[in-house]
Simulated scan of single mutants.
Amino acid sequence: MKNPTRTALLLIGFQNDYFAKEGILHSVIEESSRVSGVLQNTLALLEESAEQFDLIISTPILFTDGYSELVDPVGILRTIKDVGAFKAGQFGSETIPELDAYKDIITEIPGKRGLNAFSNTHLEALLRENGIEHLVLAGTVTSICIDSTGRHAADLGFKVTILSDCTSSRTIFEQDFYCENVFPLYGSVCSSSTLKVA
């Protein structure tokens, strides 16, 4: 049995509406995702280093057909409702097939209805139950779900690391700005190849 590292990898937004070419919101992150290599680098991390994490967690965002969970939404949540993205049971809400090979080691936590992966989910309880102290974030959108989840994790006392090459945003500028100027205010930023788990 391996020694616990007290570290969890959190995967956010790896769903067809973002990453499939026919996904409703694919164009929103397409350029940034291509430049950062978010998908390829995350898959490589899972392939080469999955065993270094005590937990690997996915928190998909899902809504009912009528979006009854969203009352007078604004911003990105309004956009999601307007374009009909992330409806439960639809292609766009499904986890991308590239992660199928790792489904036995990924714990999926349902309930995410907004920007923060801790909101309406039992993510914090799962992390506490497993003695997790360090949370490593990968996924999209950097300026929205990654940032809000990272800030909340830091407020809860977790050590936070954002993987610059395993995240993507709406623009290349936005991605770089958050990695260089925002995330260092409450956590650390590194590439997947230089990540130190301890």
Rank of each mutant, 00 (worst) to 15 (best):
Ala88Thr: 10
Val136Cys: 10
Ser119Tyr: 11
Leu70Gln: 07
Gly66Met: 05
Thr5Lys: 12
Met1Asp: 09
Ser36Gln: 09
Val35Glu: 14
Arg6Asn: 13
Leu9Arg: 01
Cys145Ile: 04
Gly23Ile: 04
Leu127Pro: 00
Val83Pro: 05
Leu137Glu: 01
Ser33Cys: 09
Val71Leu: 11
Val74Phe: 13
Gly75Ala: 13
Ala153Gly: 15
Phe19Val: 08
Ser36Glu: 07
Ala50Asn: 15
Tyr18Phe: 11
Tyr18Asp: 02
Asn3Asp: 13
Leu99Ile: 07
Ser58Gln: 09
Asn3Cys: 08
Phe91Asp: 15
Leu137Cys: 04
Phe158Asn: 01
Leu123Ile: 03
Pro60His: 07
Thr107Asn: 10
Lys159Trp: 03
Asp104Gly: 06
Gln175Gly: 05
Tyr102Arg: 03
Gly111Met: 11
Ala153Lys: 00
Thr161Trp: 05
Ile105Glu: 10
Ser188Val: 06
Asp54Gly: 09
Asn16Gly: 06
Ile76Ser: 15
Ile146Trp: 00
Thr79Phe: 13
Phe183Asn: 02
Cys179Ser: 11
Ser192Tyr: 00
Lys196His: 14
Gly150Ile: 00
Gly75His: 07
Tyr18Lys: 04
Glu180Thr: 11
Val83Gly: 07
Asn130Lys: 07
Ser193Ile: 12
Asn41Gln: 12
Thr167Val: 10
Asp165Asn: 11
Ile57Phe: 04
Gly150Ala: 14
Ala138Lys: 00
Thr59Asn: 07
Ala154Leu: 02
Val141Tyr: 00
Phe53His: 06
Gly13Glu: 08
Glu180Asp: 10
Ser33Ala: 15
Gly187Thr: 04
Thr7Tyr: 06
Ala44Thr: 14
Ser68Ala: 15
Asn116Met: 09
Gly37Thr: 07
Thr5Cys: 09
His152Pro: 01
